[in-house]
């Protein structure tokens, strides 16, 4: 197991009138090379959870293990850990600070002690992984890019550290459909081709159902459901109870199946759903 939590709990401001139990006894595992989705309504503890994966928060109860090692028992150097499990926060364009795109993207690798041609290579890899041309962008100011470009530069800065895992906290909020599609396309390609482990936190059910291999559903600090998107969205009642919703296509297929039609309900793409329904109609006719 790459990442494993054992009875992980976290309380903000313990011992004050404002105390919040953000996570309660969470047990979950993430394997190498998986594409994980984390969903749950506002305040359910998603961001708190993922900040434990690279040691940005220290559990107030239980433990978190990476490759079998308890990260808070002094067995792992936290800075090395953070370069391997990289994290992109919501609205990542707000963290840009350097004068040029090159400098900003190289911030992470520089902190790892890289320099010279190796550094340049890393920056090139980062930018080109996000579909940004190295020579066009390297000397531009990150503050004069469009919103979508800024976000990709921020992601490039993460990828330039060559992490094994990327944690993305609502990476596409505020992007237009095309931008969203392209961004996720790049992430999917890295997952497929480079074997990158991806942990995606999102509020977009349609998106996550198509992308993730495994979903974790949170509600008020507790892990309430896990499994493949098909398994998770089958529990429509639980999903709705936690304030989420199921993708429109799943809803349609489930409704059809409730009406006695023999359709698979575990399809999330338009093409697959269409094929399934067309076949159903053909069978009905014959």
């Amino acid at each position: 197991m790459l990442i494993e939590t054992r009875d992980l709990s976290f309380t903000y401001m313990p011992g004050t009138p404002f105390q919040v139990e953000a996570l309660q006894s969470v047990n979950m595992t993430v394997a190498r090379g998986e594409f994980i989705g984390i969903i749950g309504e506002t305040g359910s503890g998603k961001s708190t959870l993922v900040q434990h994966f690279n040691g940005l928060l220290k559990p107030t109860g239980g433990e978190i293990r990476v490759e079998g090692k308890n990260i808070w028992a002094g067995e792992i150097n936290l800075r090395t850990l953070r370069s391997r499990i990289a994290m992109l926060f919501q609205f990542p364009e707000h963290q840009l600070f350097e004068e040029t795109v090159f400098n900003d993207v190289s911030f992470g690798p520089r902190n790892l002690g890289l320099s010279g041609s190796e550094l340049t290579e890393r920056v090139r890899f980062g930018l080109e992984s996000m579909g940004l041309d190295f020579d066009t962008y390297r000397d531009r100011s990150p503050f004069q890019l469009s919103g979508g470009e800024k976000r990709r530069v921020a992601m490039a800065g993460i990828l330039a550290m060559r992490p094994q895992v990327v944690v993305l906290d609502e990476p596409t909020a505020g992007m237009d459909p095309a931008g969203r599609r392209q961004f996720l396309e790049q992430v999917k390609r890295l997952h497929r081709e480079e074997g990158l482990t991806v942990i995606l936190v999102t509020h977009n059910m349609e998106e996550i159902a198509l992308l993730a291999e495994k979903l974790f559903v949170f509600n008020r600090g507790k892990l309430v459901l896990q499994g493949s998107p098909a398994e998770v969205f089958k529990s429509a009642a639980v999903i709705r109870d936690t304030g989420l919703e199921i993708p429109a296509l799943s809803e349609l297929l489930q409704r059809l199946s409730e009406q006695g039609k023999k359709v698979r309900t575990d399809l999330f793409s338009v093409e697959e759903a269409a094929a399934e329904i067309l076949q159903l109609v053909r069978e009905d006719r014959s």
Binding site: P177, A178, G179, R181, E206, P247, A248, V270, A273
Partner: peptide
């Protein structure tokens, strides 16, 4: 740069 919503797309 826009998308079809799932049901009309289907």
């Amino acid at each position: 740069g826009m998308d079809m919503p799932p049901i009309p797309a289907l």
